[in-house]
Computed example of a mutant assay.
Amino acid sequence: MIDPLIKSFLFTLATLLPFLNPPAIAPIFLSMTEGASPETRLMLAKKVGINVAIMLISTMLIGNGILMLFGISLPIVRLGGGMLIMYSAWNLVTASDDNSSGETDQTKSMSLEIANSRSFYPLTFPVTFGPGAIAGAITVGVSLIDEQLSIIALRLSGAIPAILLATFALYICMKFSSQMLNKLGKSGTAVFMRLSAFIMLCLGVQICWAGIQGLVNTFL
């Protein structure tokens, strides 16, 4: 009876980690919290980690039912989420590097106002918890279904720790994002963050394209 728990744990971890991709989120998180103090960045990392864990568990349990209730298909979710990711990435790609003036004011403003507003949008959704993670969580939710309640309970007991482990890895990468990129230097970090933003933009295009292909396939 332990076997379904282990299988569910491994399946959930293998399904969600590629979509969350914690190492790739680190430079994006750093660039989107530019001007924040280390304390504010740590607070944001905790909030994003908690938000993602709650969203993944909620989507796993009720996501498929909600989509069916409103008649929303996964291709539509991919298309809409991909567009949001493209919008956020474009803002990062085109952001000005000239932010040395008023750095103190920016840090204070980030600490008091902007940080909380950015903790969910866009840092949690759609940057971290995007269409891929939604689809992955729904897939995990479907895999929990079984005729025996004991099997469902075991699978759920394996899936939830896997989600918590994946989001903890995400939190660690965001928490130490600055240290991870310090060795690159100021100019190297700027280049790396621009490159990460461009990859994020390409990911948004790819997700949109997958949504479009899914919609086209429904008419074929």
Rank of each mutant, 00 (worst) to 15 (best):
M1E: 11
D3S: 12
P4C: 07
L5I: 03
F11R: 02
F11H: 11
L13V: 00
L13Q: 01
T15R: 09
L16M: 12
P18S: 09
F19A: 10
P27L: 04
I28Q: 03
F29W: 01
L30Q: 14
S31W: 06
M32V: 05
E34N: 13
G35A: 12
G35S: 12
S37H: 09
P38L: 11
P38D: 10
E39C: 14
R41Y: 01
R41F: 01
L42C: 00
M43K: 05
L44Q: 08
A45H: 00
K46M: 01
K46G: 00
K47I: 10
A53L: 01
A53S: 11
L56I: 15
I62H: 03
G63E: 09
L67Q: 08
G71Q: 03
I72P: 06
L74I: 15
P75Y: 13
I76T: 14
L79I: 06
L79K: 05
I85E: 09
I85P: 13
Y87H: 12
W90G: 02
N91S: 07
V93T: 05
V93I: 15
S96Y: 06
S96D: 11
S96H: 04
D97W: 02
N99A: 04
S100K: 13
S100H: 13
S101E: 15
E103Y: 07
D105L: 03
Q106C: 14
S109H: 08
S109E: 07
S111I: 00
L112T: 13
I114T: 09
I114L: 10
R118P: 00
R118Y: 13
P126Y: 02
V127D: 10
F129L: 03
P131M: 09
I134N: 00
A135Q: 08
A135G: 09
V140W: 05
V140P: 05
S143L: 04
D146T: 07
D146S: 14
E147F: 12
E147I: 14
L149F: 10
S150K: 11
R155K: 15
R155N: 11
A159D: 05
I163E: 00
L164Y: 01
L164V: 07
L165V: 08
T167C: 14
F168V: 04
A169F: 04
L170V: 01
I172H: 00
M174F: 01
F176H: 05
F176A: 02
Q179M: 01
M180D: 05
M180R: 06
L184E: 10
G185R: 11
T189G: 15
A190W: 03
V191G: 06
V191C: 09
R194T: 15
S196V: 09
A197I: 09
A197V: 11
F198L: 15
I199L: 15
I199K: 05
C202R: 06
L203S: 13
G204S: 02
I207V: 14
W209Q: 06
A210Q: 13
A210N: 11
I212K: 03
F219T: 14
L220P: 08
